[in-house]
């Protein structure tokens, strides 16, 4: 079977690309569409650096066979800033020193966006659970949890 044409709505734009059989959503985002924020960390779904939103839900994009989600909508970190302005989560990470090497940051922010989309007033436990699939080796997690709670407060009217 040859490569398939896949259509996705990525960051509110319709995108069309070829995918060889078995290509993951992560590979398509990075290699076919040039969206590099989602990272290749483990290829097994254990590190969370590939986290994106698929039809609004956080998923390990390295574990999604892209042909099987033809027609779906995807949101990556590249689609988070609005008109070039950092959103509340991004601003809170920056101002809260919640990033060091940055490798986990895209996945952390997407997990946070998924949480806040469903639950605008999360408890600390809610935040911890939301990022429980995202490994960070630098920060010790504390500043990240604080930044997400800060972002939630900034976003609430």
């Amino acid at each position: 079977m040859a490569s398939q044409v896949v259509n996705l709505r990525v960051n509110e734009r319709s995108r069309e690309f070829l995918a060889a059989p078995g290509t993951s959503l992560l590979s398509s985002l990075r290699d076919a569409l040039g969206l590099m924020a989602a990272k290749r960390g483990c290829a097994q779904g254990s590190c969370g650096t590939c986290t994106v939103l698929l039809d609004g839900r956080p998923v390990m994009s390295c574990l999604v066979a892209v042909e099987t989600v033809d027609g779906a909508s995807v949101r990556t970190l590249e689609g988070v800033a609005r008109d070039g302005e950092l959103d509340e989560v991004q601003a809170a990470f920056l101002e809260g020193f919640a990033t060091q090497c940055g490798f986990c940051t895209a996945g952390m922010i997407m997990s946070a966006e998924a949480l806040l989309d469903r639950n605008p007033d999360p408890t600390r436990e809610d935040v911890v659970e939301a990022i429980s699939g995202n490994v960070c080796r630098c920060t010790g997690y504390g500043p990240i949890v604080d930044a997400i709670l800060d972002a939630a407060a900034r976003r609430r009217p």
């Binding site: 960390g41 254990s46 911890v128 429980s132």
Partner: peptide
């Protein structure tokens, strides 16, 4: 993998 290489998580 990162599941078996045990590290404390945010909880």
């Amino acid at each position: 993998d990162f599941n078996e290489y045990l590290m404390p998580g945010p909880a």
